[in-house]
């Protein structure tokens, strides 16, 4: 998802009997559906895994602004431009809510930025793909935000209070994102034949990468098992991917567009759509830094941070100068 393949402790989930009394009391609170709050005791692995997961989620929101920002100056109408600007501003907001949630776990904002810039932390693979046409902005809202919603809605019930609360705010706003994307797709799909072709082309290019957002099957992953026991991951990757396909296939049909998967068809027996796995070799290549836009995206982030250094320093210097006056 926006956080993919987050590593947990790497060992099998302990049973209640194998836990120390402190760990056991913690797990029993999680099992009972209680929220864990920042200053309360938590296992070290829980804290570290959450920092990785929330941090990666935050980085995804921030880097996710770049492919869409690409089209702010080229949006086809003033209204579309204002809407896209508002959407990209929301993504910045989502990143900030999440960074705040991560910071309650004892990591600083600058540490998180540094880890991203040095490649020690990741952001979602999806943002390493280019947005080549205006229809891509529609596909991103419809498919990428649609996939994100699948994961973010259940995370509103996750065990860590600040993360769950950030998700509540994000989910409220995310629905606008997906609908504005679908609105663009409807306009394109019902437009001229050339516009419809653009919409189909965008769907062709974003379908596989959207399915990859959920990550490879984690049925046998010890990391996922631990995260699910801690209720910081609420569903398996395959389960969410299936849910996404089931919701999206009829929407594509409504648009009169074809999902680029010859094996996609309704399976009445399962009550789900059958679909083909995306190209996992490509996914791992993108994670390794070899996607179409990895260097450009991270480069833009680092440049923005470096170029903004004098502003941050100036603000701090100004605040320091004014502080004694304010105290008088």
């Amino acid at each position: 998802m926006y956080a993919q393949m987050v590593k947990s402790t790497g060992s099998a989930v302990k049973s209640l009997d194998e836990m120390t009394p402190q760990e056991r009391a913690f797990q029993e609170r999680v099992d009972a559906g209680e929220r864990i709050e920042p200053k309360e005791w938590m296992p070290d692995g829980y804290r570290k895994t959450l920092i990785r997961q929330i941090g990666q989620h935050a980085h995804s929101e921030i880097v996710g602004q770049l492919p869409e920002g690409n089209w702010i100056t080229r949006a086809p109408t003033l209204e579309r431009k204002a809407i896209l600007l508002a959407k990209v501003q929301d993504e910045a907001g989502h990143g900030l809510y999440l960074y705040c949630a991560a910071e309650t776990l004892g990591v600083s904002r600058d540490e998180l930025f540094e880890a991203l810039h040095e490649g020690r932390m990741k952001y979602s693979s999806i943002f390493n793909y280019p947005t080549l046409t205006w229809a891509d902005i529609g596909a991103v809202g419809w498919l990428v935000d649609g996939a994100a919603i699948m994961n973010q809605v259940p995370l509103q019930r996750c065990s860590y209070g600040p993360y769950a609360r950030a998700m509540v705010r994000i989910c409220k706003e995310e629905s606008f994102h997906q609908r504005q994307g679908f609105d663009i797709m409807m306009k394109m799909a019902n437009g001229t034949p050339e516009q419809k072709d653009m919409a189909q082309d965008a769907l062709n290019r974003f379908w596989g990468p959207s399915l990859m957002m959920f990550g490879p099957s984690d049925e046998h992953s010890v990391h996922s098992a631990q995260s699910m026991a801690w209720k910081i991951k609420m569903n398996g990757n395959d389960e969410l991917r299936q849910k996404f396909v089931d919701l999206t296939a009829p929407q594509a049909e409504f648009l009169g567009l074809t999902i680029p998967d010859p094996d996609l068809k309704w399976n009445a027996e399962r009550g789900h759509y059958d679909y083909s796995e995306p190209d996992w070799d490509e996914f791992f290549e993108v994670l390794r830094g070899n996607g179409p836009c990895n260097k450009e995206r991270l480069g833009a982030r680092v440049k923005a941070w470096d170029d903004g250094a004098w502003v941050r320093e100036g603000l701090m210097a100004n605040a320091a100068k004014r502080r004694p006056i304010a105290a008088e």
Binding site: L96, Y97, C100, E103, R109, R165, A166, R169, R312, L315, M316, N318, A319, R322, R323
Partner: peptide, 8 residues
């Protein structure tokens, strides 16, 4: 509602 960073 949450927190944020600011110089002043």
């Amino acid at each position: 509602v949450g927190s944020l960073h600011a110089a002043d």
